[in-house]
């Protein structure tokens, strides 16, 4: 009992480190685009002052997957309120929240804010569109239609490619 308690204490200690580590990671990933190494994502769609970049959907192993993309905004603040796709009747905007030692996904019922003259990125371990009850298997090279609706800018349709994981091209592997 006591040992178990101590071990949990250890992991919470670890999580404090983890929270700090993530803050560093977040800072590193949200730096100026000019500092990014690798290729520049290709814009695939625009609506109003919003540009959608680099959309992708993960290959499926069951009836659940996730969609990711970046929204760049050169205008006033907006909100992504819903996402639709023909591959599923159920797509929800989620965020991952880490509390203590546990991470939970939570639906964002009020949508995802896109800051004025800024951008928001959906990526593994953060914001994502959870797609449930996927009708047929998705494999690498497939494409998926997405329909994003923003509160102010309206609706935009685009095509996302299917891949196994986050593209490595934007990361400098170094060694």
């Amino acid at each position: 009992m006591n040992a178990r308690f101590l071990r949990r204490g250890a992991l919470f200690g670890a999580l404090a480190l983890v929270a700090f580590g993530l803050a560093i990671v977040a800072a590193a990933c949200n730096g100026d685009d000019d500092d990014d190494t690798g290729t520049t994502p290709i814009p695939v769609a625009t609506v109003g002052k919003l540009t959608i970049l680099d959309p992708w959907v993960r290959t499926t192993t069951n009836d659940v997957t996730a969609a990711y993309f970046t929204v760049k905004n050169s205008g006033p603040a907006d909100t992504l309120v819903s996402v639709k796709t023909s591959i599923s009747p159920m797509a929800q905007i989620h965020e991952m929240v880490t509390s203590g030692a546990t991470s939970s996904m939570q639906e964002m019922p009020n949508g995802l804010d896109v800051p004025a003259n800024g951008e928001v990125t959906l990526k593994p371990g953060g914001y994502h569109v959870m797609v449930m009850n996927v009708k047929s298997a998705l494999k690498e090279g497939d494409s998926v239609d997405l329909e994003l609706t923003f509160k102010n800018a309206g609706t935009v349709k685009l095509t996302a490619h299917v891949q196994k994981g986050e593209a490595m091209s934007g990361m400098d592997m170094g060694k």
Partner: peptide, 18 residues
């Protein structure tokens, strides 16, 4: 781990993420 209902018979599992 605990569960969060997502509707339509779906649920998410909240679990240690490391």
């Amino acid at each position: 781990a605990t569960r969060t209902d997502l509707g339509g018979g779906n649920y998410a599992v909240n679990h240690a993420a490391y």
